[in-house]
């Protein structure tokens, strides 16, 4: 199908983009990689007045170390993230999860920031950002603002960004030695959207789990931390039994949706099974 009409704005710097966004008003959309937005336009599920295309804002594609953290520019493509030496070294969970996003052609255009700002409950990266305690850096003509991942994902496809705010990038605290990470998801073969996904990072010390972060994809309108799992597993030995007991708590406090891919009961079951797998894989450091 043919998308609705819109004004097209192609800034070449962050400043131009922010200023265009402020002038364009509430009904403008930012076009990042377009791999979610273009289908929405074609299916006429979105009718923006204007598209502000970030494709030529090269400075938004940088991935760098910054004050001890990893900073991933909003327009870094999935293809870029999966291969980036800094990401592989300091945030392997991001690389692992990103490799499961869609397919190679989509990963060539799709972006890290675009996926996060889209806030699709079935998207993989929101839960990963939540598990890693990432911080979202957003900019508007009013200045910069930092939003912790725990506050960024508000509801179904809704983030805490104001309409005039642009996601510049995401700051990710580096995981030091002793940490292991894994992303486990269940999906249909022909589509990579998670029916349920589990992002997990654990720190092992002397045969025990000292620190655990577990976040769930598609177990509610926004990603959620499996806090009961984290609380249970911390301080316990690295063993199949403790992982199984912890994962029994995976669905506590969640509101899994029911749709043609699975009922809430099925998702609850999946969350438990996948959490046990993710813990096991992550703890194998």
């Amino acid at each position: 199908m043919i998308p609705p009409t819109f004004d097209y704005i192609r800034p070449s710097s962050i400043e131009e983009a922010v200023s265009a966004l402020s002038q364009a008003g509430e009904d403008a959309k930012v076009l990042a990689g377009g791999q979610s937005l273009m289908p929405l336009l074609r299916l006429r599920l979105a009718y923006p007045d204007a598209l502000i295309d970030l494709d030529r804002v090269e400075s938004l594609r940088q991935i760098r170390s910054e004050n001890g953290d990893l900073f991933i520019g909003a327009m870094a493509t999935h293809h870029q993230v999966v291969r980036d030496p800094l990401v592989l070294e300091h945030a392997p969970l991001i690389a692992k999860a990103t490799a499961t996003v869609a397919d190679p052609a989509v990963r060539h255009r799709g972006t890290f920031g675009g996926s996060l700002a889209h806030a699709d409950p079935a998207g993989d990266l929101p839960a990963v950002a939540l598990a890693l305690d990432a911080v979202f850096v957003v900019r508007s003509v009013r200045g910069d603002r930092e939003i912790p991942a725990a506050d960024f994902f508000v509801d179904w496809m809704t983030s805490a960004m104001e309409p005039d705010e642009l996601l510049i990038g995401v700051r990710v605290p580096k995981l030091g030695p002793g940490w292991g990470a894994h992303y486990e998801k269940f999906h249909r073969t022909a589509q990579a959207w998670a029916i349920v996904g589990v992002a997990c990072a654990v720190r092992r010390e002397r045969g025990a789990i000292e620190d655990a972060r577990v976040a769930l994809t598609n177990m509610g309108p926004a990603p959620v931390r499996a806090t009961e799992v984290e609380r249970f597993i911390e301080g316990r030995s690295v063993s199949e039994n403790s992982f199984r007991a912890a994962s029994e708590r995976a669905a506590e406090g969640t509101e899994p949706p029911g749709d043609l891919h699975g009922s809430p009961e099925y998702r609850t079951h999946l969350a438990r099974v996948l959490t046990a797998r993710a813990l096991t894989a992550a703890a194998a450091v």
Binding site: Y8, G34, M38, P39, R42, D53, D55, A105, V106, R109
Partner: peptide, 18 residues
């Protein structure tokens, strides 16, 4: 699928202007 500067993309998900 076409190659866009040598990399595969789905040409239904890219604007001509891009």
């Amino acid at each position: 699928t076409v190659l866009f500067d040598g990399m595969s993309v789905k040409s239904c998900s890219v604007l001509a202007v891009q």
